[in-house]
Amino acid sequence: MSEGLVILLVIFVLAMFVGFEVIAKVPNTLHTPLMSGSNAISGITIIGAMIVAGMGTTTLATILGVIAVAFAMINVVGGYVVTDRMLQMFKTKPEAKR
């Protein structure tokens, strides 16, 4: 196991702990937006997808990369937009009748 991999593992484990601390404070009321919002964050795979789609080494790798970009982008855009749509519905007072 290389030193590089160990560093990556350290980052991974510490980030998991941060995740547990932060997420545990989210109230039940917001768990659905939390899921869709964290879904959007997992769309960060877009970075990897962009790199393999843009390297242009082999045609197959490019095709796989483009599909991956599309998948991850649905995740990112869909996740953030739908989360915003939900969160704007949460109000302290009933809205005046439209």
Binding site: F12, M16, G19, V22, L34
Partner: peptide, 14 residues
Amino acid sequence: NHGLIISGALVGAS
């Protein structure tokens, strides 16, 4: 990529 690892771990924990 560190960014991917941190973000992925956050979602994994969630």
